[in-house]
Amino acid sequence: MEKFSRWRDAGTGIQPFLPPVPARQSTSALESLISALSMVIKPVLGLAKLLVAAVVSTVMFIFVDGIGSILTETVTLRRGRSAGAAASSSKKASGKKAMPWGQIIVSNWTSYIDVLYLAFRYDPVFTQIYPDTLTVREVSMWKAMELSGSYPELAPPQGVQTYPLIDFLKDSQQKGKGPIVIFAEGTTSNNRALLKFVPLFRKCQIPETNVDINILAFKYDYQKFCPTFTVGFGRKSQIGHMFRTCAQFYNQLTVRALAAEERPSNSNFSALSGLASTPIGLATGVVESVVDGDALGSVILNLMGQISRLRKTGLGVRDKADFLDFYVQRNSGVSATAATKKSGGVASRASASSAKKRA
């Protein structure tokens, strides 16, 4: 849409914030009839799946085992090595002694379904990132789901204690908590590209052997309605999105994990190999620059782009806040912060102030 062209990445031409809309296709009379019948069946299907979730008393079950399928695979970026060999190496590496700072999981963020998958698979500690202060705080799984698609908080609300990433990792490790989930983009995208990372890893080195860094990439395959959730305020909006996702006949989530020996926490990892890539449209062997003084974050983003085969953009969390300001105003006539407060969602005063200054 031309009205949203301001948030189209100049380098890739990708718009990473708009909810995906399927392309219009010419259909025959038979296809039109089948489509009409599916419009009757899909709401029933969606309601049935939600009822199953209520019976088993967990939303997680329906998203992991009910509405579609999940494919999890270990990926190696080294030529000549099989996925089986990479998986074997990962299993061996998983048996090593605990790192002094613990374990983190860095992944792209596209939906509340990502949160459910991570909770089901790893039982981790979820975090919320504040770009203005480059700090994080612990949040519950339900809070992480609520934050998906909501207006991003750029600074912590008054009275909320936050910590630099390294301090948070050390404290969590001392308390014996599980792996720490870092959604380094700071907000959700529509799964068509990767957003610029918030520079949380500036004080880390390469390789960073004090922490076990797991790099995951989420990608969705679906029929017409996309499970990604980039715009939505409050539980009512999320429940409506859940229902439409459940109403589809087919959804598949593919999760790709980088092999353990190729992660930047491996002692043999080099910054040069981490920044060298062959993204679409660029020549083989291109070495990319460090972004915002965050060498480790740039490496992780680059590796994530390679295992996900998603392009990297120059857009980030602040661009998402600007986009939501415009998107909500355009579609409802009210500001994004007002829409968030009305729905009971999340929007900090700092975010609203920052948005006004940008306007």
Rank of each mutant, 00 (worst) to 15 (best):
Q158L: 10
D294M: 02
P16Y: 12
Y163L: 06
L258E: 02
F225D: 02
S237G: 02
R309H: 14
M304S: 03
N190H: 03
C204P: 01
S354P: 00
W7K: 04
D319H: 13
I215D: 02
D294Y: 06
T188N: 08
I206P: 00
L134M: 14
Y220L: 04
S140R: 11
M99E: 07
S5Q: 13
S38A: 11
G285V: 12
L315F: 12
T209D: 03
S5E: 15
M304Y: 01
R78D: 08
K175M: 07
K356E: 10
A98W: 07
T284Q: 12
M141E: 05
I14W: 07
T230S: 13
E262S: 00
D171S: 13
S354K: 08
V299G: 03
G285L: 12
I70S: 06
E153G: 14
G102E: 04
A86G: 09
F249T: 09
N214R: 04
A10Q: 11
S107E: 00
E73P: 10
F168I: 02
S353I: 13
R235N: 11
F126R: 13
G80Y: 12
F229V: 07
K320H: 10
A257L: 13
G176Q: 14
P279F: 13
K312N: 12
T209W: 01
G178D: 05
A350P: 09
R330Q: 15
S308I: 10
A54V: 10
Q223R: 08
F225H: 13
F120H: 15
G46Q: 04
L134K: 11
E31L: 14
S82D: 03
S140P: 05
T228W: 02
R263I: 03
G66K: 03
